[in-house]
Design a protein around this nucleic acid. Structure first.
Lengths: 259, 259
DNA sequence: ACAAAAGTGTTAAATCTACACCCATGG
DNA sequence: CCATGGGTGTAGATTTAACACTTTTGT
């Protein structure tokens, strides 16, 4: 397996753009919590968690690289993603992770070692997926798992900062696009949608008012009842993909006092 | 002067990050029009116009590079800027500009030629400046000038796309921040501010309503009268830099029918 | 005195906010 | 039959949109 890593790193030097990487914050929503996919890497001495990412081929569009990476983590064909920030401080490099690299590459693969230990600029994308459609299968090399965004501090390097930035970028965009639809299953209930909005914005929303606003927007259509819950069944809705979001704000969230 | 260019390109190879560039869309507002600073480059055979930009030093933060480049164009110390997009299609390289490069570098500076002709990813920033504070002094190497955004199509490479993207990014941000203040002089009139908002959003605004909304926000304070005009003098205002923008939208522009 | 731009007033309609209230279900 | 969460109603406050009106200047 170490051999595999070495071979991979050796190929990069020829085929990838140096000093440029790409990271993806892949969001999912489950159990009223916003989560992201992270990769667990076992370095022997330590275990680190990083965002899915990689390098960009010399002849590869940035968007193709994103799709390749997100597809690798999720297996999905259709992916909704958006570039949101570039991280490029001069000091940005593997730092803490280096000792392990140095130990394993020092003699045989000097050039590959030099390549990966350079200062890197990372172009970051956020992607939105339906949690239920994803089956994270662990591979021997890296183990993917869902991490609630409020636990992002365990991530290596500046990846926690990347997650924080992605969440606030998402929160900014939320009111103006039907983006939330990409995080929910085809059929969903209004309490689900409300919980999602609350998870992204971190603010409580008044139920009756929320419901009215969404329904009057014409963005969703009732498609049945959800009798799986423990209480009164909630109505099921789906997004109308023909309808565009109202430019004046869909979920114009403000602080309010209920509860 | 060609020697200067050659020396510069030679130094890049050692000191700059390969295949990564940075471009700045520096906005100013003058004569009711939104304008950007462009550099005119005389290639002998042809003249091209490009956005101010450059490369990033190996030990330079991205933000420092932006400041260096904007400062180079404007001479300003304090700069308001924001990253808005990365342009990185696989085909993105000097293309049309190459023949000139090849002619002048072919024999003596093969390596420098190879360096600049590679595929480049450009991290793009927009910056906001007070048009009146800028004195664009032409240098023998490149001549800087203001270009109205609606004439951006004359720009080389994909720089027109970069401008278009910058404008729409600015328009999105406008309603939520007092960002407009950076494009106006210290003292300005409400008709000025309104014209600026109209220039950025491309939509007309109802004067009485605009005025009420801005004034009730508490973001600006009256500081006198402007008697320089040909008609009734307008009141002068300044931004209160202590006051934060109302998160619910400052200039919530909608289409309307007046005029 | 008149044209034109700046600034003020007004009013109906739409939207927001904060609740009170009713309904359906499982225990 | 009651606790709980889903769904509906509504009244007051606030904001919006549209346009009429007044003021101030130069000519």
């Amino acid at each position: 397996m170490l051999e595999k890593v070495k071979k991979y790193l050796g190929s990069l030097e020829k085929e990838a753009i140096p000093q440029l990487s790409l990271n993806c914050v892949i969001f999912g929503f489950h159990g009223k919590k916003l989560k992201v996919i992270v990769n667990k890497i076992d370095l022997g001495a330590a275990t680190i968690f990083v965002l899915p990412g990689g390098y960009i081929g010399q002849r590869e569009d940035l968007t193709d690289a994103v799709e390749r990476i997100v597809r690798g983590s999720t297996g999905l064909e259709e992916i909704t993603f958006r570039q949101f920030e570039v991280f490029g401080k001069a000091s940005r490099s593997f730092g803490n992770e280096l000792p392990w690299l140095r130990r394993n590459f020092a003699k045989t693969d000097r050039k590959a070692l030099a390549w990966v230990s350079k200062r890197f600029i990372s172009v970051c994308y956020l992607a939105l997926v339906d949690f239920n459609k994803i089956d994270l299968k662990p591979t021997p090399f890296l183990e993917a798992q869902w991490l609630p965004v409020d636990e992002a501090s365990i991530l290596a390097m500046d990846h926690a900062d990347i997650v924080t930035s992605a969440v606030s970028s998402l929160a900014k965009e939320l009111p103006y696009t039907p983006i939330a639809s990409k995080l929910l299953p085809y059929k969903f209930t209004l309490p689900d949608l409300q919980a999602l909005v609350e998870a992204i914005t971190g603010k409580r929303v008044d139920r009756p008012n929320f419901r009215r606003k969404i329904l009057s927007s014409g963005l969703i259509v009732k498609v049945g009842k959800d009798s799986s819950g423990q209480r009164r069944p909630a109505d099921l809705y789906r997004f109308r993909h023909d309808k565009k979001a109202n430019p004046l704000g869909l979920f114009n969230i403000q602080d309010h006092r209920t509860r």
